[in-house]
Nucleic acid binder design. Sequence first.
DNA 1: TAGCATAGGGATAAAATTATCCCTTATGTC
DNA 2: GACATAAGGGATAATTTTATCCCTATGCTA
Lengths: 140, 140
Amino acid sequence: MYERKIPLTIDCGLHLTKEVLNGKWKPALLNAISMDVKRPSEILRLLQGVTRRVLTVQLKELEEHGMVEKKIYPQLPPKVEYSLTAIGWSLMPIIDALNQWGDTNRRFLETVITQDPKTTQVSKSPCPAYRHLLSERKIG
Amino acid sequence: MYERKIPLTIDCGLHLTKEVLNGKWKPALLNAISMDVKRPSEILRLLQGVTRRVLTVQLKELEEHGMVEKKIYPQLPPKVEYSLTAIGWSLMPIIDALNQWGDTNRRFLETVITQDPKTTQVSKSPCPAYRHLLSERKIG
DNA sequence: TAGCATAGGGATAAAATTATCCCTTATGTC
DNA sequence: GACATAAGGGATAATTTTATCCCTATGCTA
């Protein structure tokens, strides 16, 4: 397994939180799970762009960091369900805020990000419509 | 200059926001600037751990993304001041929330992060006390 | 005059993160 | 039998991000 060589900076809350959300799909995963999309295969279908491998790895990190819980059903083919822990739920207002801020400023952000010289192309597949899956989140 | 090879995913708000905050020091930089620590040299002293090079680069990205504005004073030695733009300010509630969440859950997070097998060491230099620099933020 | 401070940036090395590919398990279907 | 499904993980390549090092400019100070 990979081992970090440069000490992690966790001096202020910002860095701690950043570490938890560190991963291309982490916020999206938490969001999906909060919307009751909880089986890896479902998530994979919903979030087009994630790789199966990366999904597995990032879910595992979220689990190790205590944000999600994993329930394994002793079946074949295997069935697994992830759910948010209490502390994972406590992140949701922030995830929502991040999501809303991005959507609110989409016009502007798309422009500046696209004009970024280092960005040549952009993938804009339609955003998965989590919201219609559940009218409200199930808590717990 | 470096050019991205894999298209950026910006399909949902979460990804857009992530892109803006993407960078080891971005949230901390926005926070510092919001606290009126606005000259690069000041920031460098405050945020021990950042490299001068990385500071320059990430400030530039924040500027290109429209989150901060740069004011150059035609002096020698050079004097530069960064300040938040309107949209930059609109991120501050989120930055605050990220910061608070991390601080609130520090005990727990330090534990899980430290137990992470890939994390061997951690840098816990005292968190820069932005808060005492200003009792309130100056807006604008 | 040597050295410091101030801000920026090029070039490149190192580190960290993601992507790709392949293998395992066991049941069900064509 | 071949293949799909479901989840996981090892090994390694590719990509992206950070770190290091060095050079620019000018006025001030020891």
